[in-house]
């Protein structure tokens, strides 16, 4: 059975409406995604939907991003404490959630963003680097990185009773090949 022209036009309208809704919920617009959007600017696609419902859904979405990023970056979350949600909301104004691996991408981009804005405490930079590398390792089939840290951040993250990391210079090797290579190393400090 071939879809009728009516069915096609209903489906096209639904696709445009879904796109308009996706843009509203994520804060994206066509020009920000770099994809031409017929939905962009057509207010009639969302007319009849309660704007309060859209706003509530958008708020749920940003809270979910905050919770997921906090889980992906436990050390950063510990340092920022109650500032974490505010910092993430500021970040999210220009960084939109979309695409596959969006949760990891949020975490990776957020560590980059924070590195250019905050310097305190002294071990923040090492924590951001460590957690950035860990996310990169999680999301890439092939990955190799080597860097130096001034603080023993990995041990500190795993010990909730330790208020600050021990000052200790160490080199970290992050190495991952895909499963066929049978080599997967997220090295301990050496």
């Amino acid at each position: 059975m071939t879809p009728s022209r009516d069915q096609d036009s209903c489906r096209d309208r639904l696709a445009l409406q879904q796109r308009a809704l996706a843009e509203s919920l994520t804060g994206l617009t066509g020009n920000k995604t770099g994809v031409a959007s017929n939905a962009n600017g057509d207010a009639s696609l969302l007319s009849g939907i309660d704007p309060a419902e859209i706003a509530r859904s958008a708020e749920t979405l940003i809270r979910k991003r905050i919770a997921q990023t906090r889980s992906a970056l436990p050390g950063t979350a510990r340092i920022l404490g109650s500032d974490f949600p505010g910092a993430f909301r500021e970040f999210a104004e220009e960084h939109f959630f979309h695409g596959t691996d969006a949760i990891w991408r949020d975490a990776i981009e957020f560590t980059r963003w924070l590195r250019s804005r905050r310097a305190e405490p002294a071990w923040l930079s090492d924590t951001l680097r460590w957690e950035y590398e860990r996310c990169m390792w999680e999301t890439h089939r092939y990955y190799l990185s080597c860097f130096r840290m001034k603080f023993a951040v990995p041990a500190w993250i795993s010990r909730i009773d330790q208020p600050s990391p021990e000052r200790r210079v160490q080199w970290i090797l992050v190495w991952r090949c895909d499963r066929k290579g049978r080599i997967d190393i997220f090295s301990p400090p050496f």
């Binding site: 639904l14 879904q18 809704l21 994520t26 749920t60 979405l61 959630f97 979309h98 969006a102 949760i103």
Partner: peptide, 12 residues
Amino acid sequence: AGGIDIGHLTPV
């Protein structure tokens, strides 16, 4: 929708 991954279950 439209290449955007909302990351959230949205009703139809």
